[in-house]
Computed example of a mutant assay.
Amino acid sequence: MAFGGGCSDRGRPERRAPRKITAYDLQRAAMHYLERYAAPAAQLRRVLARKVALSCRHHEQDPAIFEPMLDEVVARCVSSGLVDDQRFAQARAATLKRKGRSSRAVEASLSAKGVPRELAREASAGSEEDELAAARKAARRKRLGPWSRGDRAASRQKDLAALARAGFNMTIARAVIDGAGDEAMQD
């Protein structure tokens, strides 16, 4: 007796065929996505466009005919306040800075999510003290400089390079790596 019931020949369950996309389905998909994730308008549009492309590929339709529908759904979400690029950028930037990301890395991350470049630059901007605190967090997390277990002098260049790759300028990186142990360990 075969117990295949709905499984492909590789043992994975078969996927259901995607439904034909309607405006109602797109709106529901947008609401469902926004219930789970905060997202800028560009990201929401990309998610919905993937859903449209999947359906169109299966039903042999042209995805271009759904562009106005996509624009309308995203515009409705923006006008209702469910999607706010500035609020998203500020919240995401604050989270990334708390994790020890540099301003450059924060700006790049926001841009990759679809936040307009000027808004990303504005949200990621911070003082030199903020950047120094973020570099210390990054160094502590990666066990660099005063937080390393090995020979600090031997690994100095590698530690500086690691902070530079993380987006910190060399002045900040040197201050953290060469910083006095007492000051750095207070954080």
Rank of each mutant, 00 (worst) to 15 (best):
H32M: 05
S55E: 11
V78C: 13
D71Y: 07
Q27W: 13
G81Q: 09
E72S: 14
G81D: 07
I21W: 06
I21E: 03
A17Y: 12
S79K: 15
V73R: 10
P18C: 14
L96N: 00
S80C: 03
I65E: 14
I21L: 05
I65H: 06
Y24R: 08
S80L: 07
A89L: 11
A94N: 10
A17M: 09
L70T: 12
K51N: 12
Q86E: 15
T95V: 10
E35S: 11
Q86C: 02
A64K: 12
Y33Q: 11
Q61K: 10
E60A: 13
Y33E: 10
V52W: 04
A64G: 10
Q90L: 10
A49Y: 12
Q43C: 05
D62A: 12
D84V: 08
A42N: 02
S79P: 11
A42K: 03
R45C: 05
V47K: 07
A93P: 06
I65L: 04
K20P: 13
I21F: 08
S55G: 13
A53M: 11
P68H: 07
Q86K: 07
S55R: 02
R28V: 03
A41T: 02
R87Q: 15
V83D: 08
R19S: 05
A64L: 15
L34F: 00
D25W: 05
A49S: 13
D85P: 07
L48N: 01
K20C: 09
G81H: 02
L26K: 02
V73P: 13
A17N: 10
Q90C: 04
H32P: 01
M69R: 06
V52Y: 05
E67T: 14
Q90T: 15
C77Y: 01
E67H: 11
V73M: 05
Q27T: 12
C56G: 09
D84Q: 05
E72F: 12
E35M: 09
V47Y: 10
E72R: 15
R50I: 05
A53F: 13
M69C: 09
A30M: 06
H59K: 08
C56P: 10
E67N: 12
H58F: 11
S79V: 08
V74W: 06
S79F: 01
T22G: 04
A41M: 08
L48Y: 00
K51S: 07
Q43W: 07
R92H: 01
R19E: 15
A93D: 00
V74Q: 01
P40N: 00
S80K: 03
E35P: 00
Q43Y: 00
A89H: 06
T22L: 03
V73C: 15
C77F: 02
Y33N: 09
D71M: 09
Y37I: 02
A93H: 00
D85N: 14
V74R: 02
R36Q: 14
P68S: 11
A17V: 14
V52N: 11
R92K: 10
Q27C: 01
A64C: 15
S55L: 02
V47W: 03
A39N: 08
P18V: 03
C56T: 04
A29W: 00
A91N: 11
S55A: 13
L44G: 01
P68A: 05
A53Y: 03
R28N: 09
M69G: 04
A53I: 01
D25I: 02
M31I: 14
A49W: 15
I21N: 03
